[in-house]
Every structure is written in structure tokens, then in C-alpha cells.
């Protein structure tokens, strides 16, 4: 758990023991493995990358090859306790629709995303006049899988429009120290990653 990023540590804390968890875009299964070991969840991952799928299978995890952009209509209402999506919302064609789906499949959902309102991408764009490229968002504008750039404020506006309830949220700065404190007061400017625990109404 120690080498887990702070935003994933938050996700692990919020997951109820013995629950049934769906991880959308589960990657190589890092989070599912930890949740299985520490929270005894019954987990299922959806993933599209063949190498990631193989790694999940090698770890003894349940993983299903699925393109999130084709929707989640194949799954039943309320078939999971919690549906997770980490750092993937910005790469989905319709983030608003997938949020609806996550709260249809799960009693609650946890979403993490990179906050594009962070001061670094803001100043990159302001001073360089080019779309931000950083260690954190390492892609050029033309090959980036990240097709939606949005801020913490944008996201909360969407939640208000949808009428979704925030059960919990946490703003995470990559570096510890002053930035961690700052991002509690000005999340839209200082949070690099936002973690939200949501429910319907």
C-alpha cells in the first residue's frame, strides 16, 4: 500500500470490505489486487489492452476484455456495490454518460481524474501558448488518449446538473508539503488529482 499513489490509497480506504467491485479500465490490476488482499472484495476489471489483460489473469484476477466506449449496457442494474474508474474519465468519449452508467451498475462509484485547472497546466498554456505537456500529462495534443480536459469546478458543475451526491472527496497533490495544504483550500488550482466518491441523489 505504501508504494501506491495517494489517490489510489484513498480509493482503497473508501472501499467496503467484502464488497463487489467493478474497476473500469483496471490496467494491470494493481488496485484490484490490493483491494482483494486488503478488503477481500470480489473484483472484476474491464480492460482493453491485451498486455494488461494478461497481467491481470497472471495475478489471478477476473478481467474482461471490453471497450468502455461501447457502453456498459451488457451489465445489469445494481450488479456491483462500487464501480471505480481511476484516471480514465478524461479518455472516455462521453464522460457524462459513463457516470450515469457507473451509478446504474453500482450503489456508489469512485472516480479519480487529473485536474486540468491545476496551476501548472494553466501557466504552461498561459506562458508558452501551447497545450500542456508534463510528466503527469505526458502526451502531445495529437496523440493524447485524453480527449476531455476539465477541472474540479467543471466536474462539480456536472454533478450538480445531474443531481448526484458527493459522499466524499479528496484533492491530491503529487508533492507533499505546502501544496497538499493549498489544494484543500483552492482545489481547482492546486489539486493534481481529484478523487470523488459519488452516489445517486
Amino acid at each position: 500500500m505504501d508504494n501506491l499513489s495517494p489517490n489510489l490509497q484513498t480509493v482503497v480506504r473508501w472501499i467496503k470490505p467484502n464488497s463487489r467491485v467493478l474497476d473500469l479500465g483496471c490496467g494491470s490490476g494493481t488496485l484490484l489486487s490490493i483491494l482483494t488482499e486488503q478488503k477481500n472484495i470480489q473484483g472484476l476489471g474491464l480492460e482493453i489492452d491485451p498486455d494488461n489483460i494478461l497481467q491481470c489473469v497472471s495475478k489471478g484476477l477476473s478481467v474482461v476484455e471490453h471497450d468502455l466506449n461501447t457502453g456498459l449496457s451488457r451489465f445489469d442494474d445494481a450488479s456491483f456495490d462500487t464501480v471505480i474508474m481511476t484516471q480514465t474519465l478524461q479518455a472516455i468519449e462521453r464522460p457524462d454518460l459513463i457516470l450515469d452508467e457507473m451509478l446504474r451498475l453500482g450503489k456508489d462509484c469512485i472516480v479519480t481524474f487529473p485536474n486540468f485547472g491545476h496551476w501548472q497546466p494553466r501557466s504552461y498554456l498561459l506562458f508558452k501558448g501551447r497545450m500542456p505537456v508534463s510528466d503527469y500529462l505526458p502526451y502531445s495534443w495529437y496523440d493524447s488518449p485524453n480527449i476531455h480536459f476539465f477541472t474540479v469546478n467543471d466536474f462539480e458543475t456536472l454533478l450538480t446538473d445531474k443531481g448526484y451526491r458527493i459522499l466524499n472527496k479528496r484533492m491530491v497533490a503529487q508533492k507533499k508539503g505546502i501544496q497538499t495544504q493549498l489544494c484543500q483550500f483552492w482545489p481547482n488550482l492546486f489539486a493534481e488529482t481529484a478523487v470523488y466518491h459519488l452516489a445517486k441523489f
Binding site: L44, I53, S62, V63, F75
Partner: peptide, 17 residues
């Protein structure tokens, strides 16, 4: 995929590729 979905609905452990 239908087999997989039925197994998921039955809350069984399943991987699919």
C-alpha cells in the same frame, strides 16, 4: 461474451478475452 455476461450475472469469477 454471452457466456461471460451470464457468469458475471451469476457473480462467478470470470475472465474473458
Amino acid at each position: 461474451e454471452e457466456i461471460t455476461d451470464a457468469l458475471i450475472r451469476a457473480t462467478r469469477h470470470v475472465s474473458y478475452a
